[in-house]
Design a protein around this nucleic acid. Structure first.
Lengths: 253, 253
DNA sequence: AAAGCTTGGTGTATTTTGAACACAATACTA
DNA sequence: TAGTATTGTGTTCAAAATACACCAAGCTTT
């Protein structure tokens, strides 16, 4: 990953810029062709994958850090980004501790210390993302949730945890604004829900329920040109959507 | 809070034992006389209150740290303890930075650094807790949620956030095992729910719904001796309760 | 001791919600 | 023009939530 000089340089920068012991990892969900995807970085010349992550600057709010890190990786800005958990096992980054232990003595090696990572997850519209690998990565691409490559450290667990949170969130918050294009059809939105939940939903009841939330606007013109009956196009009414995010959808007591 | 020598000693211990930049704060909810309470520490000779909190040892899992810290404060062990959020504003602990800035130079002063705090909340049975103040605190007692004293730093905000999480959790998880005594009556449990939600619930429908969860066991003997009709006593069926925690109660898709 | 008050347990209509399904409409294909 | 796949809407039936009514038990009051 780093050669010795790169490591020395990075450690110097890191030590002066970042908070010790703390990292952020982002689970970026995207949706495409009926599949839920996760953004992963592949290390050069290695069969090693990582979540897009980074460190918190000494004077930076963590929400801002998460957004900055995500922007560096995906080019996206102002998207739904949610803290969901801290992963704090003392040994979670041990492979990183060991990786450079022969290059630099521990007190000079940024990676020799223990890191807690704050997990964030994001939902982005697949087509608006232009994944760009940074200098240390060979590629930055989408991976199918059902067919993940070999994520290192505890990153597979972090993905799993983010997915659990997402599924839970579906029960009391609207989803989709950041995962769908501006305009979409009802079956497309349904497919998103079915993919996240990994289960079939009834077409008619889904439509009724979603519309009942009052967060969708149906446009006059149906989508033309495709095969079969032209479906209506919907878009989110941002104001109502954000209100539903705050207030919750219903359920409960 | 600390005099100079105490500060020097503490900083030395802290520096060798704890992770930099990271703290844990616990919002401990208790329930008594129809009121939801929070455990708060009052600083000696000051009108300053804090949540029970502490630091993470260099080699300690954060869940263990949270439990240790809580045990130090409440004497309670093996209780429901849940991470709910990280508070990471760069200025959140500025009052602490400044407090000792004239006693020690920043590089020796543990409190001069920025701290992120991981918020945990706990639900405990009021009568089983024996709040014991540590050496730096004048008292460790319960405060009514509707009448909180002047919590310092962002601790009032942390309490608010924990309460929001608790209310949300009520919609998909059972509550009460750690807040109620071993045996309790249905009206007592209902009072807990009403207090957390801050709203009245229908007596009959509450009973039906709670019993429908299948997590309660009704004992043969009703409670005798009180005025009026003797109510049945209930207790949680731990196995079913824990299963409901995992599986969730229902609702959603 | 009987009436009355208060609290707790159970039942029962009514309304609302959710699940399952039938059918009509549209646009392409053959 | 019939056939097929897909989308939009309505209808039925069951389950669940809601709002009450009533009964039972224990104490108090007279």
């Amino acid at each position: 990953m780093f050669n010795k000089q790169e490591l020395i340089d990075f450690c110097e920068t890191a030590r002066s810029s970042y908070l010790d012991h703390i990292s952020i990892d982002c689970v970026v969900f995207g949706f495409h062709e009926g599949q839920l995807k996760v953004l992963g970085l592949k290390i050069k010349n290695e069969a090693s994958w990582y979540l897009p992550g980074g460190f918190v600057m000494k004077d930076e709010p963590i929400e801002m850090a998460a957004n900055r890190i995500l922007k560096e990786r995906t080019g996206l800005d102002e998207i739904f980004l949610q803290q969901f958990r801290v992963f704090g096992d003392p040994d979670r980054a041990r492979p990183h501790h060991d990786m450079y232990k022969d290059m630099l003595p521990p007190e000079e090696n940024w990676f020799s210390m223990r890191f807690l990572t704050i997990g964030y997850y994001a939902l982005v519209d697949f087509v608006n993302v232009n994944p760009t690998p940074d200098g240390h990565s060979e590629s930055c691409t989408w991976y199918d949730l059902t067919d993940l490559p070999d994520f290192k450290l505890d990153h597979a667990q972090i993905i799993k945890s983010a997915l659990d949170t997402l599924r839970l969130q579906l029960n009391y918050q609207p989803i989709g604004y950041n995962l769908m294009p501006k305009e979409f059809t009802m079956p497309e939105l349904q497919k998103l829900y079915e993919t996240i939940l990994d289960k079939k939903l009834d077409r008619r009841n889904f439509q009724r329920r979603i519309l009942g939330f009052g967060i969708l606007n149906r446009s006059e013109q149906p989508r033309k040109g495709g095969a079969h009956k032209a479906p209506y196009l919907y878009s989110f009414v941002l104001k109502n959507y954000q209100n539903a995010l705050k207030e919750g959808l219903k359920g409960g007591w």
